[in-house]
């Protein structure tokens, strides 16, 4: 049987969703039989490959690198899943938005509230540039499936992936659609 070419990424997030992914414990072994993990923070591949079947996108779109990557993901992936509340709603990552545009946020964090060497960090080509607004993934690219939770519990992730790798569209019960 064909293996599903799967990727996972984290954009502006805390990696908690990936931790929860690892919490699927022994089922990961079963999953490993069904997929090729072609790109992920958990494996050492530098370039997002072509022809990916499914990608779990953790985190919101917060900087230019996120934006670039998420557009590339959409272009190269059949099924994009917003993975966790940051990807679906912006969540904690987007809590900076009410403070204003990127420069205002940087000023607040690195100048106004700083008591040691206040300076706005700037390393062109190394540090990605903040976008003025953090946006959920579906505000930037079309998204095929939404997986809620901060983080989504391991069982919920499995409830989505298990039918998917068997070619069945996952129908989560309403109670598993809970944010937070």
């Amino acid at each position: 049987m064909d293996r599903v070419k799967m990727a996972t990424v984290w954009l502006g997030g805390c990696s908690g969703c990936h931790m929860s992914f690892l919490d699927m414990d022994e089922w990961l072994v079963d999953l490993a039989q069904r997929i090729d993990l072609v790109y992920s923070p958990l494996v050492d591949v530098k370039e997002y490959p072509e022809d990916v079947d499914v990608c779990l996108v953790e985190g919101a779109v917060a900087n230019d690198e996120n934006l670039h990557l998420v557009r590339r993901i959409r272009a190269r992936t059949r099924l994009v899943i917003s993975f966790g509340d940051c990807a679906v709603t912006g969540n904690v990552t987007a809590m900076r938005n009410p403070l204003g545009v990127a420069l205002e946020v940087l000023k607040t964090s690195y100048l106004d509230k700083s008591n040691l060497h206040p300076a706005i960090p700037s390393e062109p080509e190394i540090l990605p540039v903040l976008l003025d607004q953090v946006r959920p993934v579906h505000a930037v690219i079309p998204v095929d499936y939404y997986l809620q939770g901060c983080p989504p519990p391991a069982d919920r992730i499995r409830a989505v992936l298990e039918p998917l790798v068997n070619g069945v569209w996952p129908e989560l019960p309403l109670a598993e659609r809970r944010f937070g």
Binding site: T89, P136, Q148, L174, R177, R178, G180
Partner: peptide
């Protein structure tokens, strides 16, 4: 939050 679940809101 409960109402979002009841009405089946999966994203905004």
């Amino acid at each position: 939050q409960d109402l979002a679940v009841t009405v089946g809101m999966d994203h905004v």
